[in-house]
Simulated assay, not measured.
Amino acid sequence: MPVHVYGVTDTSVTIPTDRTGRSKRPLRHIDGGDLRVLVSDVDDDSRVLREDLMAHAHTLEAVATLGTVLPMQFGVEMPDDDTVRHELIESRGDEIRPLLERFEGLLQLTVAVDLIEQEALKEVLRRDPDLVALRDHVQRAAPQDRHSAEVRLGEAIAGALEALRAEVGDGVVDRVAPTARAVSLGEVRGALQAAEVFLLVERDRQSELDATVTTLRDDLAPLASLRYVGPQPPYAFLDAASSGELSWA
């Protein structure tokens, strides 16, 4: 029967038995030597649902709380257990073991910050009297002049929001980076995202980062909201650490 592959860990990591994976199938593992591959069975004609994507991610996060796991991209399937054993353990074991050693004792935590639009607009207006004057000018402008004035105001506000977004983002990185062994920055998306920061953190320092994030969330309110995700496998750091030959997530 085909199997869906979640990731690779070592045999010291106990796979959680209270979770189900893709298509709500039980999780199980395939061992070889000191390596353990986390899998679940799938039907040949199994359709991919959004809940399957979530199950894949949540399974890996659950294992990451227990030990080091190298995550595979969603959709990696192999025809049977013997193929998994041959492709990942026998053929690629020498590649996988150094990666597991490199990330031993480390986990990824993600901090994402988004400006709250109305609060950000209030802030840029508070900081810049010229913007307030331009806004008031638009409100008083004659109908034939209003469009060009609105364009100038929109451009000025967009520039001010971009500067505020960069300022908040830089401040977030400065606050959380000292706790991390390594930092990777995601590309900000949309007009309001200020930062997406991936942090590779020693397990025994997670509580330190937790406390920093709690304080940071309070300090950012009400200007911005903060999402804190993890523990996770080292998604953002695998490409830099590996040869890229395997389909790491």
Results as ranks from 00 to 15, higher is better:
100 L>S: 05
126 R>C: 12
87 E>R: 07
49 L>N: 14
80 D>F: 00
69 V>I: 09
115 L>I: 07
54 M>Y: 11
71 P>I: 01
49 L>M: 13
115 L>N: 04
91 S>R: 11
87 E>L: 03
86 H>D: 07
58 H>L: 11
122 K>L: 14
105 G>N: 02
61 E>C: 10
53 L>V: 13
68 T>Q: 04
101 E>C: 05
123 E>L: 09
118 Q>P: 13
82 D>P: 02
102 R>T: 10
70 L>D: 07
96 I>G: 00
90 E>Y: 07
121 L>F: 11
62 A>V: 05
92 R>S: 15
124 V>K: 08
86 H>G: 07
51 E>Y: 10
82 D>Y: 00
54 M>K: 15
80 D>L: 00
80 D>C: 00
105 G>C: 04
109 L>E: 08
112 A>K: 15
59 T>Q: 06
62 A>C: 05
89 I>V: 11
51 E>P: 12
54 M>R: 15
89 I>T: 02
105 G>P: 04
51 E>Q: 12
103 F>K: 00
114 D>I: 02
53 L>M: 13
108 Q>D: 08
116 I>F: 05
123 E>S: 12
98 P>C: 04
62 A>I: 07
71 P>C: 01
60 L>V: 05
53 L>P: 14
94 D>P: 11
57 A>C: 11
58 H>Q: 15
124 V>A: 13
95 E>G: 11
88 L>G: 02
62 A>F: 10
64 A>Y: 04
109 L>R: 12
60 L>N: 08
97 R>P: 08
91 S>Y: 04
83 T>H: 11
102 R>P: 10
105 G>H: 02
107 L>N: 10
115 L>G: 04
64 A>L: 06
109 L>W: 04
59 T>S: 02
67 G>A: 05
66 L>H: 08
103 F>I: 01
84 V>T: 00
63 V>M: 03
96 I>T: 03
100 L>D: 07
67 G>R: 09
70 L>E: 02
52 D>F: 03
73 Q>Y: 00
95 E>T: 10
101 E>T: 11
98 P>H: 00
60 L>I: 10
93 G>R: 01
100 L>I: 06
103 F>D: 06
100 L>N: 06
93 G>N: 01
99 L>E: 08
84 V>N: 06
103 F>M: 06
66 L>D: 02
101 E>A: 13
124 V>C: 12
117 E>F: 03
53 L>I: 12
108 Q>P: 09
98 P>Q: 03
65 T>H: 10
92 R>C: 11
118 Q>A: 14
95 E>C: 06
75 G>S: 01
120 A>F: 07
77 E>Q: 08
124 V>N: 09
97 R>F: 07
122 K>V: 13
109 L>T: 09
122 K>P: 07
123 E>H: 14
109 L>N: 09
103 F>L: 07
88 L>Q: 01
98 P>K: 03
74 F>D: 09
49 L>Y: 14
123 E>V: 08
61 E>D: 14
97 R>S: 08
112 A>M: 14
58 H>N: 07
80 D>Y: 00
93 G>Y: 01
73 Q>W: 00
79 P>G: 02
87 E>M: 06
97 R>I: 06
124 V>R: 04
120 A>P: 13
120 A>W: 02
58 H>E: 12
65 T>M: 06
49 L>W: 15
61 E>S: 12
76 V>W: 01
118 Q>N: 15
81 D>N: 02
83 T>F: 09
117 E>N: 14
88 L>T: 03
115 L>A: 09
117 E>K: 13
119 E>Y: 06
